[in-house]
Design a protein around this nucleic acid. Structure first.
Lengths: 198, 198
DNA sequence: GTCTATATGCTGATAGAC
DNA sequence: GTCTATCAGCATATAGAC
């Protein structure tokens, strides 16, 4: 694979992500993507296998970035409460660096599912990654309670609350791109964890 | 209009909302809706004007419910901090009572937009309602800071954080329908406001 | 109010020339 | 690696019989 074709593929993925973000996967046609890249839709198929292939190539890498990130934090020797703070900072950074791909995470994964019993395991792989992340997040949260840093709150509500804000951050950030990252980190850590500290 | 046809329309709206929630507006076909209701797609058009008409009939009423609710809270003589607590309780109740319609609020409004300069103002009306709600929410939030109940935090980040969690509550609630509402209210108020109190 | 039949256009994807 | 031409299927919506 030449450097040029790699760049072309990257461009197709980037343009697709932006279109999927704006209208959703289902409402974005292969012709829309081809227009954005500047070629005919038939030519796209020299670079991609299918429309769903594009979605996989966006969702699986970003899910792996999340998992790698939380794994690394978890391996550290930090107290659990500081792990949670670092996870929030990491999610902010992932969002700032990949806003279009991140925007697909909350809802577009449903379109990875093809009809019955395809040989396509992208859906299952994505769900596994998401569940792994959430489980680890909850584990660390529980540990922070056990260590006495957090009140013994309703864990599932608290984790939902934190994660739903972080998953939507791409949307707020798009309208406030000039904000200082350190301020964003400080404010979100206060918003999301402040009410739960002992 | 007979009682029967009114019920039929309600059923079409309810079934549509559930389908739109599951796959999104764009990926749901008129045939899908007709199947769910138990008729042919052509027959649906005796009850609805168009597919987009259904979306309007779901989104505009729920947006008006939100606005009516926050207006009423705002008219009260409560301190601003208690207004915020009541707004959170109201949003929880609206979500519990209309989970399918509420699920469309974050992302599906984009499909109210037809091509250029249609005589369709549903999109503008929806955006106006949403902006009105957000502006009022921010006003009350600022007032709570002015009254000394909340720290002088970054207002836009804090309001985004609170609202993004409440807008996604339908999703968490679907998996935890047995939770006691009073607990949900207490925990969410703590999660969302706790870190900001003076 | 429901149906069958149909109109018209767009969908994802492929074949084959250059 | 891009194009034109094309396919089969599905989209929303309408016409008109019953």
């Amino acid at each position: 694979m030449t450097l040029k074709s790699k760049n072309r593929q990257k461009e197709i993925l980037a343009k697709s992500a932006r279109l999927f973000r704006k209208k959703g996967y289902a409402a974005t046609s292969v012709r829309d993507i081809a227009d954005a890249v500047g070629m005919k839709s038939a030519s796209l198929y020299n670079h991609i296998k299918s429309k769903e292939d594009i979605l996989q190539s966006l969702l699986l890498p970003i899910a792996k970035i999340y998992v790698t990130s939380i794994d690394e934090v978890n391996k550290s020797n930090l107290p659990a409460i500081e792990k949670l703070e670092q996870i929030i900072r990491d999610q902010i950074n992932i969002t700032i660096e990949n806003p279009d791909a991140v925007s697909l995470v909350p809802d577009q994964w449903v379109f990875l599912k093809n009809d019955e019993s395809d040989d396509n395991y992208a859906y299952d792989e994505y769900i596994d990654l998401r569940n792994y992340y959430e489980k680890l997040f909850i584990d660390i949260f529980q540990q922070a309670i056990a260590e006495g840093s957090l009140k013994s709150v309703h864990i599932e509500i608290a984790c939902f609350s934190i994660l739903s804000t972080l998953r939507r951050l791409y949307s707020w950030y798009a309208r406030h791109r000039t904000i200082d990252k350190a301020i964003l980190e400080k404010e979100l850590i206060m918003n999301l964890l402040g009410g739960l500290r002992k």
